[in-house]
């Protein structure tokens, strides 16, 4: 479904990603794990069209994404939950969700998707007229996920959903992510919290210093000495 082929990405004259390639298939939950500064967020930005690759190609269902502007991605069926959620704090929960359904195809089904989101996250239904700025960290993350799902995407990308959350909340958010995946959503999960990510993912890629250094199922990666030592202690 998503094919990232040998992309080189950088900022001005600093190269961040060096020939990164990976793929995500329909229905999979794939994790991209690695330490801080490895290039995880830059990878997502490149897919979202927020940062243009210097070379290489990104294909989504056969379409080359490198030519599409950022705001077209939602229409193509890619949704991203940015790091920290980035909800619109001045708007109400409902308005945030309405914005999620911005692409025309999503707008048609808005009422129905909204109902689904309220079932998935009952908390949001309780707070629909509240400003997103008044929500707790966990609620904001749930809102960010629901907002992304409002566009009825084919691929959901999550950037550090565990960021800044208490362990108990992390478990809850990850359980929701698993639930969403089991309902058929293809997910690309970017995480620093390796243990939690590996538990969830069908397959994972390990990224370090801007390069993919390992790939496989969670069990296979655990046999990698460096994964154990670097992330599991």
């Amino acid at each position: 479904m998503l094919n990232v082929e040998n992309i080189n990405v950088g900022y001005k004259d600093l190269q961040v990603l060096w020939g990164v390639s990976f793929q995500v298939n329909q229905g999979e939950l794939v994790a991209l794990i690695g330490p801080n500064g490895a290039g995880k967020t830059t990878t997502l930005k490149a897919i979202m069209g927020l940062r243009r690759p210097w070379s290489g190609a990104i294909y989504f269902e056969g379409c080359n994404l490198c030519k599409a502007p950022a705001h077209k991605m939602a229409e193509l069926g890619i949704a991203m939950v940015p790091e920290g959620g980035r909800v619109f704090t001045g708007l109400t929960v409902l308005e945030n969700l309405e914005l999620g359904a911005f692409p025309p195809h999503a707008r048609k089904h808005m009422a129905q998707t909204l109902e689904e989101m309220y079932q998935l996250f009952p908390r949001l239904a309780e707070r629909k007229f509240q400003r997103a700025g008044t929500l707790s960290g966990g609620e904001r993350q749930m809102l960010a996920i629901a907002r992304a799902l409002m566009s009825r995407p084919k691929l959901l990308m999550l950037d550090e959903p565990s960021f800044g959350l208490a362990p108990l909340l992390v478990d809850r958010i990850f359980a929701k992510i698993q639930e969403i995946n089991q309902a058929g959503m293809t997910i690309l999960l970017v995480e620093q919290n390796v243990r939690a990510a590996l538990e969830l993912a069908h397959r994972s890629y390990v990224i370090q210093n801007g390069r993919i250094v390992g790939t496989g199922t969670s069990e296979e990666l655990l046999s990698f000495e460096f994964v154990r030592s670097a992330y599991l202690g």
Partner: peptide
């Protein structure tokens, strides 16, 4: 309003 509040988040939602 979305563009005003969080431009890149708005873009990623298709705005």
């Amino acid at each position: 309003v979305a563009v005003r509040e969080e431009t890149s988040a708005a873009e990623s939602l298709g705005v």
